[in-house]
Design a protein around this nucleic acid. Sequence first.
RNA 1: GGUCCGAUAGCUCAGUCGGUAGAGCAAAUGGCUUUUAACCAUUGGGUCCCAGGUUCGAGUCCUGGUCGGAUCACCA
Length: 537
Amino acid sequence: MSIPQFDEIVETNDQTEARREHLESLRALVGNVYPNKFVRSAISGADDTISGLLRYEPVVAIADEMASVKAGLKDGERPPAEIKDALNEKLKALGTVRIAGRLTTPPRGNFVHLTDGIAKLQIYCKKNTFALIKNDGEDTRDEENAWAAWGLIDHGDFVGVEGYLFVTNTGEVSVHVEKLQFLAKAMLPMPDKMHGISDPEIRQRRRYADLIASSLQVEHDGLTTREVFETRAKVISSLRRFLEDHGYIEVETPMLTPKATGAAAKPFKTHHNALDIDLYARIAPELYLKRLVVGGFEKVYELNRNFRNEGISFKHNPEFTMLEFYCAYMDVNGMMDFCEEMMRESIQRAAGSLKVSYEGNEIDFSKFERIRMRDAIRRYAPEAEINDTNIVELFEERAESNLIQPTFIVDYPKSISPLSKASPQNPQVAERFELFINGMEVANGFSELNDPKEQYERFVDQMSERERGDEEAMVLDEDYVRALSYGMPPAAGIGIGIDRLVMLLTNKHSIRDVILFPHLRPERKANVAESDDESTE
RNA sequence: GGUCCGAUAGCUCAGUCGGUAGAGCAAAUGGCUUUUAACCAUUGGGUCCCAGGUUCGAGUCCUGGUCGGAUCACCA
């Protein structure tokens, strides 16, 4: 196997050549072009923990003041000099600031923007008014070569600067650079600042570049990629907080399991060499979590990946994030109430509103409808004749896609719910619900079957389904039957598809837009140089 | 897997009836130096996805292929 050359991995063209030349010239001026650190401080004397100068309160106050002055101006009109001077006095009083970041505008003229991970801030370098700091371990000042070094910095490079704050003639808060330090090189050109990366494959494969693009982009529809993943993080942390606040404990159960159970799905198979056994990537943590309920954890949750070896689509990724939790002594109705409350609170926190716009629909999370599967079919297909064998099919074909607003579908057939308790009123119906939003299944929950004998029989039924060719029928988990035999309190559980929830909150049509590194085909070489291993068919 | 659409400069895209390969951004060089996506001037940059075919002539038409997207079917 041949090891690819650096230049085969990192493309070369006239632009990257220029960047490499700049890098070598800079090396001659500053020494180490990849120094180890730069101590930032929003304000002199502050520590490295403060970044995002534009969120520092005294600066925010001045920026706001400037903004209100500018609001009263006509297009192109500049703020009065005396207001500007007064603000500059205040800014200068804040003292020296040290900030670092990536250059998010091409270094043309004296003004460039730095982005430090929180905000974008303009910096101003004027010839003969700043020094270059060499990376020689001594922080040597170099007045002579500062301007030359400035000219060698490329769009996308990282620099650290020290200077004082001021507002420009057009009223933008900026840093007047007094010391400039080179911190790291971007050897590849930055993505298009107007359009970002349009090829969805490159956007997903090179998520880092997509994220950079979202910080460069001047105009964009909806959320930037960065904002999508910030929203995702917020949803997840709010869900966690809600569960913690309600006494739930977070646990981690095996991802590699000897049996793929807990859901109807095809698993990924792998092999453990030392034990010489096959293992399956889990398709659901369900049975492990209920073992913990048996063991006395009355409220448990797990928020992590499930793996299913099935098709890929706009709403399916081979690995996806599921929040599953169980609560002892609760039934399906209590779980729907709890789910509703939890989703409302987390969505309010993450999206700032209970009404979100998704693909032209306004989805209102303030109210969740509950409707029996049978009635949902009647609503959208009144002519259909419903019986026990066609009900699920009818529901999926005729009703599901109409369920735009949050809707709990209840009264599932027992036959497709092997882990769920039957309804006391109707033994053919499971005490189970699924939550649909915008035609997508987002959650699935039920009153947990805790009679070990009945569970055993349900598994046996599943096994015979399997015999008949249903690859997704559940397999018997003997140890789980044994666990239930120690006694499990009545309990309700739920699984919530986090990726789909995030899609709804970020107005993304594809699950791959809410997963940082979604599953993609292996990257193909642009020039397949006489491939030596692809001739096997 | 079926159907539809697409692939042209580093990026985003135009390219008419088949007749010399284009723009904006990015880059290089020089100028400018308080600018708000795009300051001014100049310059460089192309395997028009690949292979075949039709034609005096193919980015353009035809056939096959590769890769990608949308969609349908299975799945959360």
